[in-house]
Design a protein around this nucleic acid. Structure first.
Length: 481
DNA sequence: AAAAAAC
């Protein structure tokens, strides 16, 4: 692959240009119209960023006809939730609803229950929004009667959501939350909780074995819904699961991305929904400084990765690769080269996966090499750098860049107003053009880094990462850590 | 040509 003639630019080249190139950051002044922000000259955002946010709310016919529903709330108290739930929010240091929460929550908790399709940038509080809705619908006097079902695309995300529900609901008496993931539900007893968070296959299995009584379910939440409904296999399972649930169940679909094609499925799956949708130019998170490294050939990607190790461990970092095998291979080589890294993917045992992620969350491990299994939803506030070792491609044959997965991957940093860095590796025309198309899709510029100008790379990355260590003054992450 | 998700 070391075809020097085919690479786009030498490391020492001036920033790439041309309409389809990821142009070097061209001094976008951040101006929120109130003059409070200093213009910056390098495209790097510093400190805590209040996300610019333009929601488009489309009301379901039912609610468009009524005047009563609140369209926006300024505080959680206004929602009129039980004190136990408000106490949970307080304990998590959730002081004020995020944008998505203030718009979506009143629509979701109102009666009669109405379906919702909600889109919001990564790290802006979607999880807490649907968790509050779920808790608002639970009758706590029936603690072992399943009343809410939440589906997620990976065991890691299901466990994380389970943790958020338990934390927000810590003052709710008799709240039991179970994860329906492989190995978690006892074969003897079956589901014995009011809230179930699971992956589609296991949930299907439990329902078929009659170990999960779905007759009293009030609400179905599908997180990462575009992925869940679009994926072959998971899409079918989601449809079958829905077919077995009460017809009146409230359906809530959440994601940071909803490609047009999948929006059609979503509207069929959750008919007559309220909708909150963003234009794709508004989907990138301002706090994430998106960079790319133009490597001379594929083998230099590994060398570059090793050079970045010192910067990766200032905070925590996630390295995304295409396959399980390359995750293992890079881990093996890095360890042989004296770096401490771990690798998490679907070939590992469930318990091993749980332990690896727990170590990463707690900071015991700081560099995690992984596949797309962790691209979506995973919330670890200390992640200050995301590396796209391989540019995400969709479908068979790697023909098309996967802009949605790119956005979800980089969204593992810059959570809740924090700042972070993403570095995408390109090394040939194909990877360069793929990244260019992604940049064009979102209407963004990427900051170019050159492998042989290490001083500049270090400076660019450090500027962001050091400021990311500052404590946020609002909205801690969804796990409250 | 991948990953994920069930037994």
């Amino acid at each position: 692959m070391a075809d020097l003639a085919s690479r786009i630019s030498k490391p020492s080249d001036a920033p790439a240009d041309g309409p389809s190139a990821p142009a070097a950051a061209a001094a976008p002044a951040q101006d929120n119209g109130n003059g409070a922000e200093e213009p910056v000259d390098d495209g790097i955002q510093r400190g805590l960023i209040e996300p610019a946010y333009d929601v488009e709310v489309k009301l379901a016919d039912l609610q468009a006809d009524t005047e009563s529903p609140l369209y926006s709330v300024q505080s959680f108290e206004e929602l009129g939730l039980p004190k136990s739930i408000n106490d949970g929010l307080l304990a998590m240091n959730f002081k004020k609803p995020s944008k998505i929460q203030e718009r979506a929550l009143p629509l979701m908790i109102s009666n009669p229950p109405t379906n919702m399709i909600a889109q919001s940038q990564s790290g802006t509080g979607k999880t807490a929004a649907f968790v509050l809705t779920v808790l608002s619908r639970i009758d706590f006097s029936k603690p072992t009667q399943p009343q809410a079902l939440l589906l997620a695309p990976s065991r890691e995300l299901a466990r994380q959501i389970q943790g958020v529900i338990q934390t927000v609901g810590q003052f709710c008496e008799n709240l039991i939350v179970e994860a329906a993931i492989p190995g978690s539900i006892s074969r003897e007893t079956g589901v014995k909780s009011s809230v179930v968070v699971g992956t589609p296959g296991t949930v299907m299995d439990l329902i078929r074995r009659r170990q999960f009584d779905v007759s009293q379910l009030k609400v179905l939440v599908i997180d990462e819904a575009d992925n869940m409904l679009d994926q072959q296999g998971m899409g079918d399972q989601c449809i079958r699961v829905k077919g077995m649930l009460p017809k009146t169940i409230q359906i809530l679909l959440f994601s940071a991305t909803f490609p047009d094609k999948v929006m059609n499925y979503a509207r069929k799956y959750a008919p007559n929904s309220n909708e909150i949708k963003l234009r794709h130019q508004e989907l990138t998170v301002k706090g994430i400084s998106q960079m790319y490294m133009d490597c001379p050939d594929e083998s230099k990607k590994y060398d570059t990765l090793c050079k970045l190790y010192g910067l990766m461990t200032i905070g925590s970092s996630v390295i995304f690769v295409k396959t399980r095998d390359s995750a293992n291979e890079i881990q093996r080589r890095m360890e042989a080269d004296g770096h401490k890294v771990s690798a998490l993917h679907g070939a590992h045992e469930g318990q091993n996966r749980d332990a690896l992620l727990d170590d990463f969350r707690s900071g015991r491990s700081k560099v995690l090499i992984t596949t797309n299994v962790l691209a979506r939803g995973i919330d670890v506030s200390s992640v200050s750098m995301v590396i796209n070792y391989d540019i995400p491609m969709k479908g068979y044959g790697d023909k098309e860049p996967d802009a949605e997965t790119y956005l979800h991957r980089i969204g593992r940093t810059g959570r809740f107003g924090r700042v972070g860095v993403s570095i995408s590796f390109v090394y040939d025309r194909k990877s360069f053009e793929a990244l260019s198309q992604i940049a064009e899709f979102y209407g963004i510029d990427l900051i170019q880094l050159a492998p042989d100008d290490w001083d500049r790379t270090e400076k660019k990355v450090q500027e962001v990462i050091k400021s990311s260590r500052a404590k946020p003054d609002y909205a801690p992450n969804a796990l409250g850590n």
